[in-house]
């Protein structure tokens, strides 16, 4: 049987794990979607749209996530926008992740050969159709390894949600560690939880990569 300390630790961490999943899954999906949209605008948009999106990416890649979360949770109420800690955390993660994802997507979009676009145009595709049906499906496959990497980062930086009082894995663990003053064991166990989460994510992302693989495209 586990000692009372470990019993409490495991039940807290499991509760935290659930909250972490609630944070990570929508943030990862939202981050990818935002990254695709912003990445496309940055690659194909007109000058104004491109500048706007470049600025967004520069700001969210250029400032610490903690600062972004603080502003969303503690700063926005000053202008009358009050977000719950959960909403603030997810919003922060989506915005930050989206900025990084847009860079992977943009790089992949630019790597698609011009002749693919020409072929679509020659068949009468509009610019929008060419991008949506030909360029993006190819680019997403090329961007997948990079995007997976960003999702793995996201799993770990989701541990910052506790600074805006959203009690996820790290937050729950930290409370127990402070209560019992047993930091080493607690953070070692927290580390294991994250390792498990990341390993699971790698497994799933590898499966996605395999399922979307096309012979002779993006493989040697």
């Amino acid at each position: 049987m586990l000692s009372p300390f470990y019993q409490e630790l495991v039940s807290s961490l499991n509760r935290g794990l659930l909250m972490s999943l609630y944070l990570i899954i929508p943030s990862a999906v939202g981050g990818i979607l935002l990254g695709i949209i912003v990445g496309c605008f940055r690659a194909f948009g007109n000058t104004f749209v491109r500048k706007m999106c470049d600025t967004y990416a520069a700001i969210f890649r250029g400032t610490p996530l903690v600062v972004q979360l603080f502003i969303l949770y503690f700063g926005l109420p000053n202008i009358g926008i009050c977000l719950s800690s959960y909403t603030a955390a997810v919003l922060g993660f989506v915005l930050c992740s989206g900025a990084y994802q847009s860079e992977y997507i943009r790089g992949a979009l630019l790597s698609i050969k011009q002749n693919q676009y020409s072929a679509a145009q020659a068949l009468g595709f509009s610019r929008f159709q060419s991008i949506v049906w030909i360029i993006i499906p190819q680019a997403l496959r090329k961007a997948l390894p990079g995007c997976s990497n960003e999702i793995i980062y996201l799993i770990k930086y989701s541990s910052l949600a506790y600074v805006v009082t959203c009690m996820e894995l790290t937050g729950e663990g930290k409370a127990i560690a402070t209560e019992y003053f047993r930091f080493t064991e607690v953070f070692a166990v927290i580390g294991l939880y994250y390792l498990l989460l990341v390993s699971l994510a790698i497994l799933v992302l590898k499966k996605v990569e395999k399922a979307t693989l096309i012979p002779g495209f993006g493989q040697f």
Partner: peptide
């Protein structure tokens, strides 16, 4: 776009959609 549908093009490098 309508004009291009009526004027087909064959390229030297085939330009098939790779995916």
């Amino acid at each position: 776009y309508v004009y291009r549908q009526q004027v087909g093009m064959i390229f030297q490098d085939f330009n098939l959609f790779d995916h």
